[in-house]
Protein backbone atom coordinates (compact mmCIF):
# COMPACT_ATOMS: atom_id res chain seq x y z
CA UNK A 1 0.00 0.00 0.00
CA UNK A 2 2.74 2.39 0.96
CA UNK A 3 4.63 1.66 -2.28
CA UNK A 4 1.52 2.52 -4.28
CA UNK A 5 1.22 5.94 -2.71
CA UNK A 6 4.93 6.52 -3.08
CA UNK A 7 4.82 5.93 -6.82
CA UNK A 8 1.59 7.92 -7.12
CA UNK A 9 3.27 11.01 -5.79
CA UNK A 10 6.49 10.64 -7.73
CA UNK A 11 4.99 10.05 -11.18
CA UNK A 12 3.58 13.52 -11.88
CA UNK A 13 6.73 15.14 -10.46
CA UNK A 14 8.90 13.06 -12.76
CA UNK A 15 6.79 14.05 -15.71
CA UNK A 16 7.14 17.78 -15.23
CA UNK A 17 10.84 17.31 -14.63
CA UNK A 18 11.14 15.37 -17.86
CA UNK A 19 9.40 17.96 -20.02
CA UNK A 20 11.48 20.78 -18.57
CA UNK A 21 14.60 18.70 -19.10
CA UNK A 22 13.60 18.11 -22.72
CA UNK A 23 12.87 21.83 -23.18
CA UNK A 24 16.23 22.69 -21.67
CA UNK A 25 18.05 20.30 -24.00
CA UNK A 26 16.18 21.59 -27.04
CA UNK A 27 16.89 25.17 -26.03
CA UNK A 28 20.60 24.46 -25.91
CA UNK A 29 20.48 22.56 -29.16
CA UNK A 30 18.72 25.38 -30.99
CA UNK A 31 21.21 27.92 -29.66
CA UNK A 32 24.07 25.86 -31.09
CA UNK A 33 24.57 27.04 -34.67
CA UNK A 34 26.50 23.95 -35.76
CA UNK A 35 23.80 21.64 -34.40
CA UNK A 36 21.08 23.63 -36.19
CA UNK A 37 23.08 23.29 -39.42
CA UNK A 38 23.19 19.55 -38.79
CA UNK A 39 19.43 19.42 -38.20
CA UNK A 40 18.83 21.32 -41.43
CA UNK A 41 21.04 18.88 -43.35
CA UNK A 42 19.27 15.84 -41.87
CA UNK A 43 15.88 17.46 -42.51
CA UNK A 44 16.84 18.12 -46.11
CA UNK A 45 17.81 14.49 -46.73
CA UNK A 46 14.69 13.24 -44.94
CA UNK A 47 12.47 15.31 -47.21
CA UNK A 48 14.38 14.12 -50.27
CA UNK A 49 14.06 10.50 -49.16
CA UNK A 50 10.35 10.69 -48.34
CA UNK A 51 9.37 12.56 -51.49
CA UNK A 52 11.91 10.86 -53.76
CA UNK A 53 9.39 9.90 -56.48
CA UNK A 54 8.26 13.53 -56.73
CA UNK A 55 11.73 15.06 -56.63
CA UNK A 56 13.45 12.69 -59.06
CA UNK A 57 13.27 13.95 -62.63
CA UNK A 58 13.78 10.55 -64.24
CA UNK A 59 13.47 6.90 -63.33
CA UNK A 60 16.52 5.86 -61.28
CA UNK A 61 16.99 2.68 -63.31
CA UNK A 62 15.85 3.62 -66.83
CA UNK A 63 18.79 3.24 -69.20
CA UNK A 64 19.29 5.10 -72.46
CA UNK A 65 22.26 4.55 -74.73
CA UNK A 66 21.73 7.93 -76.42
CA UNK A 67 22.40 9.89 -73.25
CA UNK A 68 25.50 8.00 -72.01
CA UNK A 69 28.00 9.82 -69.75
CA UNK A 70 26.56 13.29 -70.26
CA UNK A 71 27.79 16.21 -68.20
CA UNK A 72 25.32 17.98 -65.92
CA UNK A 73 22.72 19.93 -67.89
CA UNK A 74 19.20 21.32 -67.54
CA UNK A 75 17.76 17.97 -68.60
CA UNK A 76 20.09 15.88 -66.43
CA UNK A 77 20.87 18.04 -63.40
CA UNK A 78 23.90 16.01 -62.33
CA UNK A 79 24.60 14.32 -65.66
CA UNK A 80 24.19 10.68 -66.63
CA UNK A 81 26.16 7.47 -66.08
CA UNK A 82 27.60 4.94 -68.50
CA UNK A 83 24.16 3.43 -69.09
CA UNK A 84 22.52 6.81 -69.62
CA UNK A 85 20.78 6.75 -66.24
CA UNK A 86 20.06 10.13 -64.63
CA UNK A 87 22.53 10.60 -61.75
CA UNK A 88 20.36 13.13 -59.90
CA UNK A 89 17.39 10.76 -59.80
CA UNK A 90 19.59 7.84 -58.77
CA UNK A 91 21.03 9.87 -55.93
CA UNK A 92 17.60 11.06 -54.82
CA UNK A 93 16.48 7.45 -54.46
CA UNK A 94 19.86 6.55 -52.99
CA UNK A 95 19.18 8.85 -50.02
CA UNK A 96 16.46 6.37 -48.98
CA UNK A 97 18.94 3.51 -48.94
CA UNK A 98 21.61 5.35 -46.96
CA UNK A 99 19.14 6.70 -44.38
CA UNK A 100 17.56 3.28 -44.04
CA UNK A 101 20.89 1.58 -43.56
CA UNK A 102 21.96 4.19 -41.01
CA UNK A 103 18.75 3.97 -38.99
CA UNK A 104 18.12 0.22 -39.15
CA UNK A 105 21.69 -0.86 -38.44
CA UNK A 106 21.85 1.55 -35.51
CA UNK A 107 18.57 0.11 -34.26
CA UNK A 108 20.06 -3.38 -34.47
CA UNK A 109 23.05 -2.17 -32.47
CA UNK A 110 20.77 -0.62 -29.81
CA UNK A 111 18.39 -3.58 -29.57
CA UNK A 112 21.19 -6.07 -28.97
CA UNK A 113 23.93 -3.92 -27.47
CA UNK A 114 21.91 -2.05 -24.82
CA UNK A 115 20.44 -5.10 -23.04
CA UNK A 116 23.79 -6.91 -23.18
CA UNK A 117 25.56 -3.93 -21.63
CA UNK A 118 22.79 -3.36 -19.07
CA UNK A 119 22.67 -6.97 -17.87
CA UNK A 120 26.46 -7.19 -17.81
CA UNK A 121 26.79 -4.02 -15.76
CA UNK A 122 23.85 -4.70 -13.46
CA UNK A 123 24.66 -8.27 -12.43
CA UNK A 124 28.45 -7.94 -12.56
CA UNK A 125 30.48 -10.93 -11.41
CA UNK A 126 31.15 -13.88 -13.68
CA UNK A 127 28.42 -12.95 -16.14
CA UNK A 128 30.03 -9.54 -16.60
CA UNK A 129 33.50 -11.01 -17.08
CA UNK A 130 32.26 -13.48 -19.69
CA UNK A 131 30.19 -10.88 -21.53
CA UNK A 132 33.06 -8.45 -21.59
CA UNK A 133 35.38 -11.05 -23.10
CA UNK A 134 32.85 -11.61 -25.89
CA UNK A 135 32.75 -7.87 -26.46
CA UNK A 136 36.57 -7.80 -26.46
CA UNK A 137 36.54 -10.42 -29.20
CA UNK A 138 34.15 -8.36 -31.33
CA UNK A 139 36.18 -5.21 -30.75
CA UNK A 140 39.33 -7.06 -31.89
CA UNK A 141 38.18 -6.52 -35.47
CA UNK A 142 38.99 -2.87 -36.09
CA UNK A 143 36.49 -0.51 -37.73
CA UNK A 144 34.93 -1.76 -40.90
CA UNK A 145 36.64 -5.16 -40.64
CA UNK A 146 33.94 -6.77 -38.48
CA UNK A 147 31.28 -5.66 -40.97
CA UNK A 148 33.40 -7.10 -43.79
CA UNK A 149 33.66 -10.44 -41.97
CA UNK A 150 29.89 -10.59 -41.45
CA UNK A 151 29.17 -9.68 -45.07
CA UNK A 152 31.62 -12.35 -46.24
CA UNK A 153 29.55 -14.94 -44.43
CA UNK A 154 26.06 -13.56 -45.13
CA UNK A 155 26.69 -12.49 -48.71
CA UNK A 156 26.25 -9.13 -50.38
CA UNK A 157 23.11 -6.94 -50.61
CA UNK A 158 21.55 -4.01 -48.79
CA UNK A 159 19.83 -6.14 -46.16
CA UNK A 160 23.02 -7.96 -45.22
CA UNK A 161 24.88 -4.66 -45.05
CA UNK A 162 22.36 -3.46 -42.47
CA UNK A 163 22.85 -6.61 -40.43
CA UNK A 164 26.64 -6.44 -40.77
CA UNK A 165 26.97 -2.80 -39.75
CA UNK A 166 24.39 -3.40 -37.03
CA UNK A 167 26.37 -6.29 -35.55
CA UNK A 168 29.55 -4.23 -35.82
CA UNK A 169 27.95 -1.54 -33.62
CA UNK A 170 26.72 -3.93 -30.91
CA UNK A 171 29.99 -3.87 -28.90
CA UNK A 172 29.97 -0.06 -28.91
CA UNK A 173 26.60 0.01 -27.15
CA UNK A 174 27.40 -2.88 -24.85
CA UNK A 175 30.50 -1.07 -23.56
CA UNK A 176 28.81 2.30 -23.30
CA UNK A 177 25.69 1.08 -21.48
CA UNK A 178 27.66 -1.16 -19.13
CA UNK A 179 29.65 1.88 -18.01
CA UNK A 180 26.56 4.01 -17.47
CA UNK A 181 24.75 1.22 -15.63
CA UNK A 182 27.71 0.74 -13.30
CA UNK A 183 27.45 4.42 -12.38
CA UNK A 184 23.66 4.52 -12.06
CA UNK A 185 23.10 1.27 -10.15
CA UNK A 186 24.77 2.65 -7.02
CA UNK A 187 22.20 5.49 -6.80
CA UNK A 188 19.86 5.41 -3.84
CA UNK A 189 16.68 5.25 -5.92
CA UNK A 190 17.82 1.93 -7.34
CA UNK A 191 18.27 0.63 -3.81
CA UNK A 192 14.82 2.02 -3.01
CA UNK A 193 13.29 0.23 -6.01
CA UNK A 194 14.92 -3.00 -4.89
CA UNK A 195 13.67 -2.51 -1.35
CA UNK A 196 10.19 -1.92 -2.74
CA UNK A 197 10.37 -5.46 -4.10
CA UNK A 198 10.72 -4.72 -7.81
CA UNK A 199 12.21 -7.44 -9.97
CA UNK A 200 15.57 -7.07 -11.65
CA UNK A 201 13.95 -6.77 -15.06
CA UNK A 202 11.82 -3.77 -14.17
CA UNK A 203 14.65 -2.17 -12.19
CA UNK A 204 16.92 -2.39 -15.24
CA UNK A 205 14.40 -1.29 -17.85
CA UNK A 206 12.25 1.15 -15.86
CA UNK A 207 14.67 2.71 -13.44
CA UNK A 208 18.24 2.31 -14.63
CA UNK A 209 18.10 2.49 -18.43
CA UNK A 210 15.99 5.67 -18.62
CA UNK A 211 18.79 7.36 -16.72
CA UNK A 212 21.38 6.10 -19.19
CA UNK A 213 19.48 7.51 -22.17
CA UNK A 214 21.64 10.58 -22.74
CA UNK A 215 24.83 8.74 -23.77
CA UNK A 216 22.78 6.22 -25.79
CA UNK A 217 21.10 9.01 -27.77
CA UNK A 218 24.39 10.80 -28.41
CA UNK A 219 26.12 7.58 -29.46
CA UNK A 220 23.21 6.64 -31.74
CA UNK A 221 23.49 9.91 -33.62
CA UNK A 222 27.19 9.28 -34.25
CA UNK A 223 26.51 5.62 -34.97
CA UNK A 224 24.06 6.46 -37.75
CA UNK A 225 26.83 8.49 -39.38
CA UNK A 226 29.37 5.70 -38.95
CA UNK A 227 26.98 3.07 -40.32
CA UNK A 228 26.30 5.21 -43.39
CA UNK A 229 30.05 5.52 -43.97
CA UNK A 230 30.65 1.78 -43.47
CA UNK A 231 27.76 0.83 -45.73
CA UNK A 232 29.03 3.16 -48.43
CA UNK A 233 32.49 1.63 -48.00
CA UNK A 234 31.08 -1.87 -48.41
CA UNK A 235 29.10 -0.70 -51.44
CA UNK A 236 32.27 0.80 -52.87
CA UNK A 237 34.18 -2.46 -52.41
CA UNK A 238 31.42 -4.35 -54.22
CA UNK A 239 30.43 -6.08 -50.96
CA UNK A 240 27.30 -4.03 -50.35
CA UNK A 241 24.36 -3.01 -52.48
CA UNK A 242 24.56 -4.65 -55.89
CA UNK A 243 24.14 -3.29 -59.40
CA UNK A 244 21.11 -1.56 -60.35
CA UNK A 245 20.49 -0.49 -56.68
CA UNK A 246 21.27 3.24 -56.55
CA UNK A 247 23.28 3.08 -53.32
CA UNK A 248 25.70 6.03 -53.11
CA UNK A 249 28.84 3.97 -52.43
CA UNK A 250 27.99 1.61 -55.30
CA UNK A 251 27.27 4.51 -57.69
CA UNK A 252 30.63 6.01 -56.76
CA UNK A 253 32.44 2.73 -57.27
CA UNK A 254 30.78 2.35 -60.65
CA UNK A 255 31.77 5.87 -61.69
CA UNK A 256 35.43 5.27 -60.88
CA UNK A 257 36.13 3.82 -64.31
CA UNK A 258 35.07 7.13 -65.89
CA UNK A 259 36.81 9.49 -63.47
CA UNK A 260 38.97 11.04 -66.20
CA UNK A 261 36.10 11.84 -68.53
CA UNK A 262 33.02 12.04 -66.30
CA UNK A 263 34.09 12.81 -62.77
CA UNK A 264 30.59 13.97 -61.79
CA UNK A 265 29.81 10.26 -61.29
CA UNK A 266 32.24 10.13 -58.37
CA UNK A 267 32.19 13.70 -57.09
CA UNK A 268 28.47 14.10 -56.34
CA UNK A 269 27.68 10.79 -54.61
CA UNK A 270 30.72 11.35 -52.39
CA UNK A 271 29.55 14.85 -51.52
CA UNK A 272 26.11 13.47 -50.66
CA UNK A 273 27.63 10.90 -48.28
CA UNK A 274 29.86 13.59 -46.75
CA UNK A 275 26.95 15.94 -46.08
CA UNK A 276 24.70 13.28 -44.64
CA UNK A 277 27.44 12.04 -42.32
CA UNK A 278 28.37 15.62 -41.40
CA UNK A 279 24.73 16.35 -40.54
CA UNK A 280 24.50 13.49 -38.06
CA UNK A 281 27.92 14.28 -36.58
CA UNK A 282 27.00 17.94 -36.04
CA UNK A 283 23.75 17.00 -34.31
CA UNK A 284 25.65 14.41 -32.25
CA UNK A 285 28.14 17.03 -31.08
CA UNK A 286 25.29 19.40 -30.26
CA UNK A 287 23.33 16.76 -28.36
CA UNK A 288 26.38 15.79 -26.37
CA UNK A 289 26.90 19.37 -25.25
CA UNK A 290 23.19 19.94 -24.62
CA UNK A 291 22.80 16.77 -22.57
CA UNK A 292 25.90 17.39 -20.49
CA UNK A 293 25.06 19.72 -17.58
CA UNK A 294 28.73 20.73 -17.34
CA UNK A 295 28.98 22.26 -20.80
CA UNK A 296 25.62 24.02 -20.78
Amino acid sequence: MSTATATDTTVPKEKTKKTSELKEVLKHLIRNRAAVAGLVIIGFFLIVAVFAPFIATHSPTATSLVTRLQRPSAEHLLGTDELGRDLFSRMVFGSRISLNIGLISTLIGVVFGVPIGAVSGYYGGKLDIITQRFIDIMIAFPGILLAIVVVTVLGVGVQNVMIATGIASVPVYARLVRGSVLAVKEQSYVAAARAAGLGDFSIIFKHILPNCLAPIIVQSTFQIATSILWAAGLGFLGLGAQAPTPEWGAILSNGRAYIRTAHHLTTYPGLAILFMVLGFNLVGDGLRDALDPKTR
Partner: peptide, 22 residues
Protein backbone atom coordinates in the same frame (compact mmCIF):
# COMPACT_ATOMS: atom_id res chain seq x y z
CA UNK B 1 38.41 18.46 -39.01
CA UNK B 2 34.62 18.03 -39.07
CA UNK B 3 34.66 17.56 -42.83
CA UNK B 4 37.68 15.28 -42.58
CA UNK B 5 35.83 12.90 -40.27
CA UNK B 6 32.70 12.92 -42.44
CA UNK B 7 34.33 12.44 -45.85
CA UNK B 8 34.25 8.85 -47.11
CA UNK B 9 37.88 7.78 -47.38
CA UNK B 10 37.45 6.21 -50.84
CA UNK B 11 35.88 9.42 -52.15
CA UNK B 12 38.68 11.53 -50.72
CA UNK B 13 41.12 9.15 -52.41
CA UNK B 14 39.45 9.61 -55.78
CA UNK B 15 39.25 13.40 -55.42
CA UNK B 16 42.96 13.63 -54.54
CA UNK B 17 43.74 11.40 -57.51
CA UNK B 18 41.65 13.59 -59.75
CA UNK B 19 43.33 16.79 -58.56
CA UNK B 20 46.98 15.79 -58.09
CA UNK B 21 47.33 12.99 -60.62
CA UNK B 22 44.87 13.66 -63.42
Amino acid sequence: ALVGVAAPVFWLALMLQLLFAV
